[in-house]
Design a protein around this nucleic acid. Structure first.
Lengths: 245, 245
DNA sequence: ATAACTGCTTGATCTGCATCAATGCGGGAT
DNA sequence: ATCCCGCATTGATGCAGATCAAGCAGTTAT
């Protein structure tokens, strides 16, 4: 799970473009800038439906969205949390493979598909940056498979909290200090459960167990305090490489 | 298993290059051809170790390899099966994130890292094709997360067999007919179990249950016959989109 | 304030898969 | 052939997490 807020490869930020394109074709930059438009959607909006055509490709500017697939019998599995700088839609693939839903108010930087695809095929810089972003997502997706396939419920929840804390720290461009950390959860228990491949009840029980063990405090359901981050991280770090980088 | 695959994006095949590069810079093609070399490794060879430097990028020409991560306590999760035309290593990432092991004798088409990375940054065609391949892998990895997170043991095994059959059919460039299909499993029960996030015993029991239900026959542990492919596929297809594309 | 609603927690029970433990089977060496 | 040895199957039992079922707390409406 890559949760940094200001990746090198973020495609909606002109400052990044300038850095990357410094000595490259400036017209490429102009075209990318010209092709984009911004739009904000309220919480709960379906930004894409699995199998349905997706005529805009977007980069998330602000907010949080979820990517999931739902079975006919109701089982749901999230395959990713989409955060600022993450990309929605794929060049060359006209439809979305997953449901994408705004988990909070979300602002997108949108590119009309045809324009963007032309850029990707003709501009080496853009294509290369898309490749780097996609490789990051691939690593995250594979790491996620490891979590879902082999971790216990407790490990899944700890892993979730630790990564959320690390992302938050990265967003503020500092590292997680050895001390206390406070988190606001962007997701409901149900969404967390669907993310972790668990039920709501099991997820809730794991939060309660961690609280009883003194590893977290929960002033409210959506707020988590971690008095000793290292102690929490030890629950998963000490015995494997299963931590999502 | 016959592994002659012929994806559009396969990077070791000059014929494909020619098709893609037809009107593009031919020197790019020359350089790619010049940079490659072939090598064959016996079954069991560790082609890459998680965290270790990987100085060659490779395209699989023949054989089968597995990608996995192992926890300190022995838990192991495979994150992918690598088959001909699949790629090992990532431009811009000097180390492998996973253990990659030859599951059978494997022939690789290898590119020296520096040469290949130069090609990716300078040649739009190569970069674009890498992007398409990576997007395919990303879809597969996310689909895999859905399988691991929400499918039952039986569904996992059925999904595995159905996908293997489909890949095999795709390799022979035909579709899976409505009738009987014969498969040779390229993996041991243990490896299948690690792939599916199950134990050996559960995997074996599921094979036995499918046999008892008449959905498969197993002339040997490594050979599976599917008398009615559609009937098997119905076990998963009718209620979701959880099939790996 | 009270009611009604929604999301969270907790308890009791059930079950699917893991674990522990034999047993069977096939292919290679002698 | 016979003895292996690694792999696969099958059985008995245990347990983590799912399911079923109440309660509870925060929020919005009246």
């Amino acid at each position: 799970m890559d949760l940094t807020l200001a990746k090198e490869s973020c495609l909606h930020c002109p400052i990044r473009h300038r850095a990357v394109c410094a000595e490259a074709d400036r017209s490429e930059l102009e075209r990318l800038e010209a092709a984009k438009s911004y739009r904000t959607f309220p919480r709960g909006t379906m930004l894409a439906e699995a199998g349905e055509p997706l005529d805009h490709l977007s980069s998330i500017v602000a907010g949080c969205a979820t990517m999931s697939r739902t079975f006919a019998d109701g089982r749901r599995q999230m395959v990713g949390l989409l955060l600022p700088s993450d990309f929605i839609g794929r060049p060359g693939r006209p439809t979305s493979a997953y449901n994408i839903e705004a988990a909070s108010e979300v602002t997108l930087c949108r590119f009309e598909r045809r324009m963007f695809e032309e850029l990707v095929t003709s501009a080496p810089n853009i294509a290369h940056r898309m490749l780097v972003m996609t490789l990051d997502e691939l690593d995250a997706a594979r790491d996620w498979a490891v979590v879902l396939g082999r971790m216990t419920a407790r490990e899944k929840v700890v892993n979730f909290l630790v990564n959320l804390a690390r992302r938050e720290a990265a967003a503020h461009d500092g590292s997680v200090s050895g001390g206390a950390v406070a988190l606001h959860l962007p997701l409901s228990r149900e969404t967390i459960a669907d993310y972790l491949g668990l039920t709501i009840e099991t997820t809730s029980r794991q939060f309660s167990a961690l609280r009883k063990d003194g590893l977290i405090a929960t002033p409210s359901a959506r707020d988590v305090q971690i008095p000793d981050f290292e102690a929490l991280a030890l629950e998963i770090d000490d015995d494997d490489g299963g931590v999502i980088s």
